[in-house]
Amino acid sequence: MMLKINDLNTYYGAIHALKGIDMEVDEGEIVSLIGSNGAGKTTLLNTITGVARAAKGTVVFKGRDITNIPSYAMTKLKISISPEGREVFPELTVEENLRLGAYIVKDKGAISAGYDRVYDLFPRLKERYKQQAGTLSGGEQQMLAVGRALMSSPELLLLDEPSLGLAPNFVLMIFDMIKEINKQGVTILLIEQNANMALSASDRAYVLENGKVTMSGEAKKIASDPKIKKAYLGLG
């Protein structure tokens, strides 16, 4: 078990945003978390990464309790994130953004291997390595956010809404890349509003509603559930 979340509770002010989440991610899996706006998906990710504080419950990564550790300690544990809204550093170049992804990496060879890996996955970033990140298109910024997260050679990659606001061809491409990154041995926890794409790319999935897990299991089974089809897939 790589990531195990037990009875996680988080409050945003007076709002009880997560009401006892239980979840598991195994090594090598792509697990997706689907749910409508406000269901608590990003809050869950924020709680895992220490951006929001858990009031109750635990987050265990590879046997180690990491509940409420500071955000800056995540990359050292080999967990990294491509956050919602991409959050690239707009006035820094593509290369500087990537360099920051490897901030905790001391070995120069590992850093240049990181650049090679990212430029290999996203050749377009290589073409634009001197360009300021703020001048990239939304899709390119998303590639940068994912690439930046890979620079610390994570074992677990958290992706928050990687397809949000992207043109359809970019959405397809990002999902291809997610599968490719997974094949390279990176475990992925994927948060998506595009449930269709997420379920077709994942091994397993969790459905989040009002801060609770209402369904979980194999992605294929969830995709064929009539309720899910109706609520999230725009079918039925």
């Binding site: 990464t49 951006v51 500071p70 955000s71 800056y72 300690a73 995540m74 990359t75 050292k76 990294s80 994130i81 956050p83 959050e87 690239v88 550093f89 707009p90 006035e91 820094l92 500087e96 360099r99 920051l100 992804g101 901030y103 905790i104 930046r148 610390s152």
Partner: peptide, 24 residues
């Protein structure tokens, strides 16, 4: 320098800088 890069990153987006492993 590396700390300077961290300064510029924290300046532009402190939350993202933290997530990169920078102790802002």
């Amino acid at each position: 320098t590396k700390i300077g890069l961290a300064m510029r990153a924290s300046e532009q987006n402190a939350k993202a800088a933290n997530l990169m492993g920078i102790n802002v």
